[in-house]
Nucleic acid binder design. Structure first.
Lengths: 248, 248
DNA sequence: GAGTGGTCTAGACCACCAG
DNA sequence: TGGTGGTCTAGACCACTCC
């Protein structure tokens, strides 16, 4: 059975690209179960016709969802829904955003917020001279009143003005975006280690408890390094999930 | 200074898509340092002209590299090289492939290879009835003669014929590909925990040593689940690295 | 205003898969 | 053999950035 996506419509007056409007509508249809696992999407040319779009535009929308693992295309066969229960692909979002959208009521305690000379590793990641002052930030993140992670971030001093109040009521990435920083790219390293006594105390866990660690360098759309982060999470409460796909 | 990519050529007789040929040549130029960090790529229309390609084809090649974090495009400005020292994006490859390409001389000891009823978690991941027999596989992976990870895999019984010999001389994914399985998509969860006494003994590490864990369900291009894996790695020897990008 | 990438179109031909 | 996606072309117009 080939599903008709007649419900989809695009708004040509909107500044949002047509392919993206279509992709979002398809994504919603998949997440709502309207397009169940295995559903055929129907051939691209007909689809384009129904929507009043060209085939390349429709293909681009489909390609976006294929890339994110929601659809599969097979030549001679068609396009099908792969994953009804979608895990969101690990995206360029913050822990705060993720917890909020999961309804986990994140809270934050600012442990430190000041300017300090950049340690070697940080200076190197941000492309600054060693010892250059950087905005240095340490936060304890809790979810449902349970300590979850310690977040250490380093930012160029001129990037964004931060206050304890702002940081306790929202996420760092939201503040950066509000300050006009457009995050574009990040490289991340995920590992594990045992908690030191200090780390264990902060997290309310036992010494040597397993920690999940993440280091990240984020770049804006000009290629400038705008953030270095070194975080650790209680492994009993947190994991990273993501989708890998093989579309050339 | 705008770099001329006159060196690039495409072979129209090749079955490899033109955009992909171009993308690979650009990637090599970036990795070799021929296109250093910050280099301008030069305008798309001229580039297309020089290469004898259409602009959409050139854009597709560039878009592929933007997606992988090697290039940045800015409207009104141009396309630049972002990352000279590229970390390979976490891709749908096996640990064996990764170690081989890093020159780390992986070796494998097969600890178990048999058919057994699928545990609940495995049956659910593979979409099989509970207790259905599955190919069950446990391997110890070493790099430079040092124990690195224990790999446990579960596969549908009819998928591929495996022998201890084959598994000790190459990677599982290579064997699956050779058997005609086309891996297309995987969902992964990365976490951490402490090693049990048994796990520690296998890895030659101490009890309670931190482990990095990874669970993966992989699908072929028809959307069929073809592998469930539950692996653990010595955290002192292994990390996951990947690039996140924000191209819609 | 000049130059860049961002989007979109309307075709064309090919490769693969199923019946 | 017919239908599907995969690739490619040659344009067009727009939005943004910088001078």
């Amino acid at each position: 059975m080939s599903f008709s996506v007649a419900a989809a419509t695009v708004d040509r007056a909107s500044p949002v690209p047509l392919y993206y409007q279509l992709a979002q509508q398809l994504e919603r249809a998949i997440e709502s179960g309207e397009l169940p696992r295995g559903a055929q999407l129907g051939n691209e040319i007909v689809l384009a016709d129904q929507l009043g779009l060209s085939r390349p535009t429709v293909r681009r929308a489909i390609g976006y969802l294929v890339e994110r693992g929601l659809l599969v295309r097979r030549r001679g066969v068609g396009t099908q829904v792969v994953q009804p229960r979608v895990r969101r692909r690990l995206e360029l979002t913050s822990l705060y955003d993720d917890l909020t959208s999961d309804g986990q009521q994140p809270t934050t305690r600012v442990l430190a917020l000041d300017r300090a000379p950049a340690p070697d590793l940080v200076a190197q990641a941000l492309g600054l001279p060693e010892g250059e002052p950087v905005l240095t930030l340490e936060r304890l993140r809790l979810a449902r009143n349970e300590p979850l992670a310690v977040l250490r971030n380093y930012l160029p001093v001129d990037l964004v003005a931060l206050t304890r109040e702002a940081l306790e009521s929202t996420g760092l990435y939201q503040l950066m975006r509000a300050a006009g920083v457009r995050l574009h790219l990040a490289t991340q390293t995920v590992g594990a280690r045992s908690a030191s006594a200090t780390e264990a105390r902060l997290l309310g866990d036992r010494r040597n408890a397993p920690l999940l660690t993440m280091q990240r360098t984020a770049y804006d759309d000009s290629g400038r390094a705008v953030e270095f982060a070194s975080h650790y999470y209680r492994a009993s409460l947190y994991t990273f999930e993501f989708v890998l796909s093989n579309t050339r």
